[in-house]
Structure formats: structure tokens, C-alpha cells
Design a protein around this nucleic acid. Structure first.
Lengths: 337, 337
DNA sequence: TATAATATCTAAAACCTTTTAAATTTTAGC
DNA sequence: GCTAAAATTTAAAAGGTTTTAGATATTATA
């Protein structure tokens, strides 16, 4: 059974391919096709389940109706939730989503961007970039394709962003810890730390300390390598214990760090004894915090809104509805337990 | 800066578009292009970063190099992990992944399948179907496009499957509970239960009881609506409590049910008192089980392998390497804590 | 050296739309 | 009833690749 095409419709209906195409694309009035003819065509086509060839159309119009999404890891729930929301918005507008993961590998990111824009012809790209230099994105090769950066900021002024207030949210949660009496707040950070979210959260931490006249103790900041989170967190905490550094709260800059810390403290006897009463705070809120015995103070991110805003924004840019670059900063929400 | 195309290369190199196209597609030898010419072309093109127009190529060849993935919810970590693995395999073969979620809505699923195959022209489709009737997939409209069903079986004999052994894994975990002395095992199931995974797990539960000569007590099977899991689980457990049904283990047929049960028992005083010593088992293993105080007996699914097998399989089918349908059943793994 | 066979290479068609420019039909004006 | 203007409709081009069928150049044969 061969696929139906315009030619077949034309023969069956007795109208030219041109006319049928115009009507199907909703341009009947614009081109002065009589109402009666339009109705005839639409009625007939409705019964034949004709669908235009996407590639022929894309070739002719230069529009693919694809939007690309590039993130560090689509298996990370944070990003997969964003993907879900993007997908939902796109689908209502007839667009489809093409997904790729970079594994935090900058080389791979650049390859993927190049592939999506120059080979696969997406109409727009949404990306949580792991890139620390902006030059790449300023290449004239990418100038024509709309890009929206999400989650992470890169040092590029003229760009569209949808991010959350990492600095503010972080300062807020640390302030809260201090209000509750904590003064020696260990901070679990992550490398590579040039990723803007982590950098901003760390700065928020420092800001809150300063505001409360608490001197910054560098011993309290642990830099965890993202490839060996559990091992590094365990060792880091054991190290603090060995140095007899006083700690009355542990603030993790993301959920992976927090779960690693909780697990380490649960499984290691020495840590369990030492940090049993220690408060926990985490930037990012995950379901499991409701299920464990320790109350975790957390910062919840408006994940859904990132996806919704990013997809609406990219569609607006694609449709040329935006003249200036748009920078959206979403607020976080403190969750007490 | 206009995009480079075959015409430009032809002018610059002094060879025809035909020849260049042949060489770039690795068909130089096949068409008897001299080694020397091939080298010249490849060298020159390497410096010009030419990339063929995907749509022109797809239009001409009928191959899109897209594979579609349809799941209930891409934000569900189970499916997003599968997606990640599929994506990785596809990328090495020059394919891209197009993702859509059905939200367990059969209507939506059918629309998406139709869209992907008839409009968007994917070369193959991987799908975790929520569909309970096979007729739809037997439509001749889909006959040309390779389909691989994952996770869930639909009543369709001639089809490619990559699933896990839900029946066996379920029987195994229930057997283990019984070995440990449990006899009154509550089973948290989910509706719609026509989804094959749930059905098979429930049958595994029944099988294990029968094998151990434990009569099936229908009071112990709670059917939870998937749209209100927490509320239904809470009420279900309270109901058991009210009826004074004896329960010495709670077996959840998926991770959502298990977390809901754990949360309900943690937050509700009556349940907490009653089910404090109750054992927990769950089909599906999630990280949080390592972080809570109760030891959960769980069945881990080889999620990565589902993605890897499904993507390798779909590529084989696309390439015509397979003559028969392939049915892959992956084993589960019991995790004790 | 002329012809046949072989090795290289290329022009043109095909894939299926959308859009431009032009043709045809209808209506209006005298 | 004839011409001009307006209302509909259509033929043909364009988009950029791959592939078929054929052309040209080269080598071998007589």
C-alpha cells in the first residue's frame, strides 16, 4: 500500500496540487480559494488520512519542526522532568523533540550542537551547557538557529536564558540554617565547579556567612569529583572527622551530594556517631527526603517551569516574535521538614 | 554565510555532484571511482566542513535516520534510563532519538504512533505500549516500519520484544518472603492492571503462594489507581488495619507503590504502630532503599540492558538483518538488605 | 591503427512539497 | 455583447540529495 501523496489527491479531487497544498496549510483565504472549494478539499482529505511528507516539506520550506534538547544526562530525573515538560509544550504546536546527552563532556557537547544544527537541521536548540567558554556558541555557523540556554549560564551576554535563582536560593537556605543556630556549616560542592549553578550556590553560601559575620572556614568546603561522588563524600567526611573540625550542619549543593552524604553517614559507624545530630540541607528537593528519618531542609527548584518557559521561549524565537534576548530567572522555594 | 552544498563542492573540486556524493557515501569503489579521485575528494571535503542536507537525503532515500521512542512518561526514571541507553547506541550508528510520552493514555499512544510513522517518518519505533488490543498495531499502515516493544507485552504474537521476566522475578521474591517466614503477604497492585508487567508480577505472586500451599486471600490484594497512588495506598492500608487482616509482609508491584506505602506508614500513626515490624518487598530497585531505615527486599531490573538490546535490535531490523521476530526476556536480580 | 572492452565519470531524473508567476474563469461596467 | 477588472485556479520552478542510465576516456586486442 503506497503512501498517499499530493499527486493522488489531485487526481481524485480534480484540483491542482497547488490548491490542495494551499488549503491544507490553511492558506486558502490568503490565496483566494473559494470557501466552497476549501470545504470540499478538507472534507475529502479528512477521509483519506493523507499526511504530507515531512522531509519534502522541510526541504522546501527550510523548517523541520524539530527542537533539539541537549543535557548532561537525560537519565538524570532533573533533566528528564524538564524534557517531559518541553515535550508537552512542543507537541501542542506540532513540534517534536530530539534528545541527546553530553555526559558532561564538553567535546561531545560541541559535536552534538554541531550535529543538531548543521546536520539534523533543528529549528531551535535548548541546552544545559557544560561549556565554560562562550566562543564556541558565538560561531557564525550557529547564528541562524535559535538557542535557549537552561539551568546553567555560560559567559555569553547576548543569549536567551531560563535559569533559577541559584545564588538567592542558596543564600536563603544557609541563612535559615544559621537562624536555627548552626555556625559551622560544611558545604559539599562539586567539581568541575565552573558550572554556573554550582558556582552561584557556593557564592550564595559565602554571602550568607558574610552577612551573618561568620568567617569562612575553607576546611568546611569539600570539593567532590562528580565522577566519584560517593567515594569522595565518604572520604571528605572522614577527613573532617579526623581533623576534628566542628560541624553542626551539612549543606549539599545538589541532590547527589546529599544522598551520598546521607548514605555515608548511615553506613559508616564513625560518621554515624559523629554526625548523628548534624542538620542536613540540600539545594534541590527530592522525594526520598520524605522517606528518611532525618529532616532535610531543602531548596526546591521549579523544574516544570524551566521546561515550560524554555519551550515557550524557543517557539517564540523560532517564530520571530522576540526581538531582544530574554533572560528568565525563576525563584526557588524553601522546604522545611 | 550560506550553507555549503554539493553544487558548491562540485564547482570547487571540478568533479560532478554525482561523483562527490558517491565518494562521501562510501560507494566510491562500488561505482568504480579511482582511488586517487576518492582521496582527493575526501581530503578536500574534510577541510570544508560540508554536511549533506538531512532532508534532501531523507526525501530521496526514504531513510530518516530517526528512531522514535514512545513511553508512558519520559520523566519516569525507569524510562529515562532506558532512553539514555538507547540514545547512546543509536548515536554510534548515526541515528537520532525522537521521544514522546503517552501519559498512559491509549488514545494519545495511537496518535503518537501514527504521527511518528506516518508523518515524521521514523525508520523504526521502540515502544512501551499501554495498549491492550493488538489490532491497532496490525494495521497495514505500520507494516513497513520496524517496531520493537519493550517492557510491556501486548497480545501480539508476531512482534519483536525486549522485556524482563516479570513472572519469574515476582515469584522469586515472594518465595524469598515465604522462606523468611511470611505467610500473610499483602500485595499492592495497580490499575489499569491489563498492563502486562503488572499482570505477570501478580501471577508470579499467586504462583509462589500456590507452590507453598498458602491459600490466596483476596483481601490482601490492593488495587491502587495509578492516578492517586499515595491516597489509595494510604486508604488501602488503613482499610486492612480496620478489618484487622493480619499482614506480615507488604509486597509492592512497583517502586511508586513501595514509596507510597513507606511514606504512608511513616506519616500515619496508626499504620506506623501496626506495620512497624512488617517486612517490605518491591518489584524494582531504587536508590532510596539504601537510605531508609527499613530493609527492603527488592527485585532489580536490568534497565540498561533493555535499552541496549532494544536499540541494537531495532537497528538490526532496520538493516534487514533479521528475518524472524526476536523475543528477548531478560532476567531479574534479587537484592537483599 | 582501428576496434572492442573496460575503467571512470556525469547529465538528468526522481524524491514530494511549497511558492511564484501566470493562466483561466467569473463578474462588473458600459 | 465586449472589455476591464476581480476572483479563482494551475503550471512550473525550486529545494538538495541519490541513483539510473549513459557518456567519455582509457586500455587491451587484433
Amino acid at each position: 500500500m503506497k503512501r498517499l501523496q499530493l499527486e493522488d489527491l489531485s487526481k481524485q479531487l480534480g484540483y491542482s496540487k497547488t490548491l490542495i497544498s494551499m488549503v491544507l496549510n490553511g492558506k486558502g483565504n490568503q490565496y483566494g480559494i473559494s470557501k466552497k472549494t476549501q470545504a470540499t478539499v478538507l472534507d475529502a482529505v479528512a477521509q483519506l488520512d493523507y499526511a504530507p511528507n515531512r522531509f519534502a516539506r522541510a526541504l522546501r520550506t527550510g523548517k523541520s519542526f524539530f527542537v533539539g534538547l541537549i543535557v548532561a544526562d537525560i537519565a538524570n530525573p532533573f533533566y528528564s522532568k524538564i524534557a517531559k515538560n518541553i515535550e508537552t509544550v512542543l507537541l501542542t504546536k506540532g513540534y517534536n523533540l530530539m534528545v541527546c546527552s553530553t555526559d558532561e563532556n564538553v567535546e561531545k557537547e560541541m559535536k552534538l550542537v554541531d550535529m543538531m544544527i548543521n546536520q539534523q537541521g533543528v529549528d531551535g536548540l535548548i541546552i544545559a551547557s557544560s561549556c565554560n567558554n562562550a566562543e564556541f556558541y558565538q560561531s557564525p555557523r550557529f547564528a541562524k538557529t535559535p538557542i535557549v540556554f537552561i539551568d546553567r549560564v555560560i559567559p555569553l551576554h547576548k543569549a536567551n536564558y531560563v535559569v533559577i535563582d541559584n545564588f538567592g536560593g542558596s543564600a536563603e537556605v544557609v541563612n535559615k540554617l544559621i537562624d536555627e543556630g548552626a555556625r559551622n556549616i560544611a558545604c559539599l560542592s562539586i567539581t568541575p565547579s565552573y558550572i554556573s549553578t554550582i558556582e552561584d550556590r557556593l557564592n550564595g553560601y559565602k554571602e550568607a556567612l558574610q552577612k551573618n559575620n561568620i568567617p569562612l572556614d575553607k576546611n568546611l568546603i569539600l570539593n567532590i569529583n562528580f565522577e566519584n561522588i560517593y567515594r569522595d563524600v565518604l572520604n571528605g567526611l572522614l577527613d573532617l572527622a579526623a581533623k576534628k573540625v566542628k560541624v553542626d550542619a551539612i549543606y549539599s549543593l545538589n541532590n547527589h551530594l546529599a544522598t551520598a552524604a546521607l548514605k555515608a553517614i548511615k553506613e559508616n559507624k564513625e560518621l554515624k556517631q559523629l554526625f548523628d545530630k548534624t542538620k542536613h540541607a540540600c539545594f534541590d528537593d527530592v522525594d526520598l527526603f520524605d522517606l528518611i528519618d532525618k529532616p532535610v531542609l531543602s531548596v526546591s527548584q521549579p523544574i516544570e517551569m524551566i521546561g515550560q518557559n524554555a519551550s515557550s521561549l524557543i517557539l517564540d524565537v523560532i517564530d520571530g516574535k522576540l526581538t531582544n534576548h530574554s533572560n528568565i530567572v525563576l525563584p526557588t522555594n524553601l522546604i522545611e521538614r
